[in-house]
């Protein structure tokens, strides 16, 4: 039996710790330790994106990422993006554009789309396909996913403008 080692990291903003085995991957650790069920192992080979997690702000395939390596890191899962009561703009856009069927690939798709829009607030179809090409959807909701990314981009731009206006107003008032 392999040795357990305790690692400490931040999970969706909160400090946590877990005893992990050396061969355990991040998907297993997050599910076993914290019931992060948005993180799913499907292909197990880094090819489908169902296990997408951010480590220190960068999307990784949890199925290929050893849990022990997140010691000291900042880890985020789809659970950290939004809640049932307060969905993120990308999550809202996926609902509005019906960007899923069975929903199994969906958290991974949303994680990738969220990161894409942070890097590129106004992507073209080609840029979306390119960025998201490591995420697969067997239900083939691809056209709706692309539409959802565009919709989310609009939402994020609109909220930025509102924020900017609010800032301006605050400055004037101040």
């Amino acid at each position: 039996m392999a040795e357990y080692r305790t690692i400490r990291f931040r999970l969706n903003g909160r400090p946590v710790e877990l005893a992990v085995q050396p061969h355990e991957n991040l998907v297993e650790a997050l599910r076993r330790g914290f019931q992060m069920y948005s993180v799913r192992e499907s292909c197990g080979q880094g090819l489908c994106g169902c296990c997408t997690v951010y480590v220190n702000g960068k999307a990784v395939s949890g199925c290929l990422y050893l849990a022990a390596l997140v010691d000291g890191c900042d880890v985020q899962t789809a659970e950290g993006l939004g809640t049932l009561q307060q969905l993120s703009p990308v999550q809202e856009a996926f609902i509005e554009c019906e960007g899923f069927q069975c929903g199994f690939c969906t958290p991974g798709m949303i994680m990738m789309a969220t990161q894409l829009l942070q890097e590129n607030p106004n992507p073209t179809d080609e840029e979306i396909k390119h960025y998201m090409s490591g995420n697969l959807c067997r239900c083939a909701a691809y056209p709706e996913i692309i539409a959802a990314v565009h919709r989310a981009a609009e939402k994020l731009r609109a909220s930025k403008e509102t924020d900017a206006k609010a800032d301006q107003a605050a400055t004037v008032a101040g």
Partner: peptide, 18 residues
């Protein structure tokens, strides 16, 4: 819209996988 939409986009939807 699908009734389970919010459950699916938040990753909360129930699958036997979980």
């Amino acid at each position: 819209k699908r009734l389970e939409s919010a459950a699916k986009v938040t990753g909360r939807a129930e699958y036997i996988h979980n």
